[in-house]
């Protein structure tokens, strides 16, 4: 799941710098949560002369589609100096590949844990970062890489206070959780005997 945060207005103003701008807003993809109102408000605050056209499309991360969009809106794109895109990082990069004009982005892409299972992200950091070497067998099927800020593999760091993490007292120490579960399964054998290191 990803959240698109609209960049600070001054930053985008500086980029546009009175150039004629064509705006693409990428919508549709369900993984992306776009602050639609913020974008509309921002675009409204720009002067009408600067914005040549605003088009709402979907999946500009697909090179075939964005090629298609450039063709469909050729008339107004040809009048523009720059292209401003509100989409995730992939969309901007794909558009840049096709475009002859400078492509700027108005968004920051943030990742929030959990991809599809909608409830899965409800109570804790629960994610897979594709590390390439799954440790879940040692850690009671709770991933310490995604749930521990220090990504510790061999046990808790001692920074927990009242069962909460040292970097955030609202967050449960994930190693305490792992430990609890290991106790329940009574399965310390594997993790006790292995010294786990990341394989980058």
């Amino acid at each position: 799941m990803f959240v698109l945060k609209v960049k600070k207005q001054e930053e985008i103003f500086e980029l546009i710098n009175n150039k004629k701008t064509f705006v693409f807003i990428c919508e549709g993809c369900n993984e992306i949560f776009l602050y639609r109102e913020e974008i509309t408000k921002f675009l409204d605050s720009l002067s009408k002369e600067n914005i040549i056209d605003t088009k709402i499309v979907d999946y500009i991360c697909n090179p075939e589609y964005i090629k298609n969009y450039f063709e469909i809106f050729k008339k107004t794109i040809d009048l523009s100096d720059i292209i401003l895109i509100f989409s995730c990082g992939v969309g901007v990069q794909t558009a840049n590949k096709i475009s002859n004009l400078p492509v700027y982005t108005g968004c920051d892409t943030l990742h929030i844990p959990g991809y599809k299972g909608v409830e899965t992200v409800a109570d804790e950091n629960y994610d897979c970062i594709l590390c390439g070497n799954c440790y879940l067998n040692y850690t009671a099927n709770i991933c310490p890489l995604t749930s521990c800020p220090k990504e510790l593999l061999n046990g808790p760091c001692g920074g927990a206070k009242n069962g909460k993490c040292e970097i955030d007292n609202k967050k449960d120490c994930s190693w305490e959780k792992i430990f609890e579960k290991l106790k329940k399964y009574n399965n310390f054998e594997k993790i006790k005997n292995e010294i786990l290191t990341r394989k980058f």
Binding site: F2, K5, K7, C61, C88, G89, V90, V92, Q93, T94, K97, T105, C107, D108, T109, L110, H111
Partner: peptide, 9 residues
């Protein structure tokens, strides 16, 4: 094309 979702494009 990939995005590392760094949060500060």
């Amino acid at each position: 094309k990939f995005c590392a979702t760094c949060g500060e494009c």
